[in-house]
Structure formats: C-alpha cells, structure tokens
C-alpha cells in the first residue's frame, strides 16, 4: 500500500493524524508526513484519512 502526499495542497489540518496517528504526523512545516509505510492491516484508517482530507492532498495506491 503506497500513500502519496501532495505537498502543494496539504495545509496541515491534521485530520489524517486524527484518523491514523501511527501513519501521519504534521510537522513544524505545517505539512503532514508519513511516519511509516503503512501495513495492509492499517488500510481502513489510511482510507479514512484520505477521505477526510479537507485539501484532498492524500491518495493511496492499492
């Protein structure tokens, strides 16, 4: 599972952090970063983060 962050769109709302805190973290630069390459068992949280992103900055490849 590959997660892509569009750093031109992200404004660090942190909704992804709330949905999948082990995977995403907003840095001091105000942009979210991947903490790990998520495991397939985390797919549900990651997909929730993708769906909730207010700037549509996240996408996930199967």
């Amino acid at each position: 599972m590959r997660v892509h962050i569009d750093t031109t769109r992200c404004t660090g709302h942190g909704m992804c952090e709330a949905a999948a805190e082990d995977v995403f973290e907003v840095g001091p630069d105000g942009i979210t970063h991947l903490l790990i390459d998520p495991d397939p068992s985390q797919r549900r949280e990651v997909e929730a983060a993708v769906a909730e992103c207010p700037t549509r900055a996240l996408s996930v490849e199967p």
Binding site: T8, T11, E17, E25, G30, T55
Partner: peptide
Amino acid sequence: RHTKLRRLVASAFTPKQ
C-alpha cells in the same frame, strides 16, 4: 496564498500537539 499562510500555524493545532 491561503495554503502558505495556514501552514505557518497548522502545527500548533494538530491532535498530537
């Protein structure tokens, strides 16, 4: 402009913060 300015304060309001 909104994108760039909002990032300046974003990390002060995240769930982990």
